[in-house]
């Protein structure tokens, strides 16, 4: 049995892939928890698609080593653009995400079609876990550690600002800066996920483990740790299954996250005592 778990990690490239899986399994659920709580799931989806342009330009100008840095620049560019455009309250936030996201995705597809590369477009769309090089690995590790440290340091401020924005402002929390930081954090996370599941499926790693954990917990810290446990297990297990079943790792991992969510949803529904108070029908317990 132990061989079933260890066999996929025998070669250098598969060990690098395994380490990337660990990083992704740690970071994506943490960021995904906040993205879900801030109702930015659509933003995660749009941003993951928008990195293609950065991938293409990075690859065309500097080669394969610049794919992740190129994606990171594109992600941060998108985060800053959306943050600035959102200052105009006449346009809904999700409309701005759609405008910027679709534009950048279209640019990315056209840019990739013009780039002379031996790497298929599908590698970027659905992940290229087994082609991760040492530079990619180090970038992933540094980005993951820095992002996790940021969330740990700002955890309570994020909680207060997400729950009651006005009150957080009054307490001296710079909510606008936190908003911008969250978008950049999302960009970083999407870049980290890029090699694992690709741009199309990244949102599954962001949202699904957090949503699964949310079914069982009512505190942000508990949801976060639950999401990490679920996400980490799913990413590593998905990678192992894909190895043995000779399937692409990205879609395998994504399918596993979806299956676990559905199972958890059914289990929670079956065992729930349904004590949730619907505030639309107000009543006092006393």
């Amino acid at each position: 049995m132990i061989h079933w778990f260890l066999d996929p990690f025998q070669s250098d490239f598969s060990q690098r892939a395994g380490l990337v899986c660990l990083m992704v399994g740690l970071l994506a659920p943490v960021v995904g928890t906040w993205i879900s709580l801030r109702r930015l799931a659509y933003m995660g989806d749009a941003m993951s698609h928008s990195l293609l342009g950065g991938v293409a330009i990075g690859f065309a100008w500097f080669g394969s080593a610049a794919v992740l840095p190129g994606a990171l620049v594109a992600g941060i560019f998108m985060a800053i653009t959306i943050h600035l455009l959102s200052q105009n309250r006449r346009i809904a936030h999700d409309s701005i995400i759609a405008v910027v996201g679709s534009g950048m995705f279209a640019f990315g597809v056209l840019a990739l079609s013009k780039v002379d590369t031996s790497v298929s477009l599908t590698h970027f769309l659905f992940g290229q876990l087994l082609t991760v090089n040492t530079v990619d690995l180090w970038i992933t590790v540094v980005l993951t550690v820095a992002s996790l440290f940021f969330v740990w340091f700002k955890f309570d401020d994020l909680k207060f600002a997400t729950f009651d924005r006005d009150h957080a402002t009054q307490l001296g929390i710079r909510v606008q800066r936190l908003d911008a930081a969250m978008l950049i954090l999302l960009a970083v996370c999407v870049v980290v996920c890029l090699s694992t599941v690709g741009t199309v499926l990244t949102v599954s790693l962001l949202i699904t483990p957090a949503a699964t954990s949310r079914l069982f917990f009512n505190r942000v810290d508990a949801i976060t740790f639950g999401a990490i446990a679920v996400g980490l297990t799913e990413v590593v297990l998905g990678f192992i299954i894909s190895y043995h079943a000779n399937m692409a790792p990205g879609p395998t991992i994504t399918l596993l996250t979806t299956a676990v969510f559905i199972a958890a949803y059914i289990a929670q529904f079956a065992t729930s005592d349904r004590t949730y108070v619907h505030h639309t029908h107000e009543h006092d317990h006393h």
Binding site: F163, D164, D166, R214, F217, N218, R219, V220, H279
Partner: peptide, 13 residues
Amino acid sequence: PQQSDVDLRFPIT
């Protein structure tokens, strides 16, 4: 605030 101004679905104790 009026309670309608607060996100009551937020997971907080």
